[in-house]
Write a protein that binds this DNA or RNA. Sequence first.
DNA 1: CCTATAATTCGAAATATGTCGAAGTATAGT
DNA 2: ACTATACTTCGACATATTTCGAATTATAGG
Lengths: 105, 105
Amino acid sequence: MSKYSIDGKPLTEMFKALSNPHRLALFYRLMNCCTPGTRCGMNETKRFCVGELHEGLDIAPSTLSHHLKELHRAGLIRMERRGKHIDCWLEPAVLVQLSQFFKPD
Amino acid sequence: MSKYSIDGKPLTEMFKALSNPHRLALFYRLMNCCTPGTRCGMNETKRFCVGELHEGLDIAPSTLSHHLKELHRAGLIRMERRGKHIDCWLEPAVLVQLSQFFKPD
DNA sequence: CCTATAATTCGAAATATGTCGAAGTATAGT
DNA sequence: ACTATACTTCGACATATTTCGAATTATAGG
């Protein structure tokens, strides 16, 4: 039933991850954090740590953590510890592939 | 929080609608039912009625009806009675706009 | 080794979702 | 008017999701 997938990640899981306003806001922030022409996470200065993503979101830290885990489980983002912080950036191919999925014709 | 929208329909609602395997299957069927170069619903022979969409889905009619309502509420599809049947087709602009949302750069 | 900072895990509560079957509405044909 | 077909609405129930606070882990720096 979940036969539509990208790199083994079912599309339904991706859409479920993006169906929550908080998670969509997080995704959107990561979408727009890289300089034009580059991919998010390529240059490490253009990643966001969890704390930075938290700003202006008005949810508990545990809730934020839960949402990031969902985005990660869906295959939408990558996470990597960097000292006390954990950096987040978009899974590199995901924008191209989702854009392609909806592409008409 | 749901500030990202297309034609007044919040993106979260669209993604929520697509986050269910049955609904994604319905959407996918409508996505691919039109002849290349045309938009779904332009030529009325290329619409699916509810009964046709039901085929091979193994859910109760009432469940199908519920799912189609969700797709409609999210602004993803249009529905129109045609005699005893009700025809469904994609909201014309939705593929372009969703594809655009994910477009990198 | 102790402390402060950053983030996660766990458990609980409220709310939302997916599903069905029974009953209801709409339409076409007889 | 009656019947069959096509689909929807309603009510109920099981399961999933969202959210929080308290407790926990991981790291860096004195």
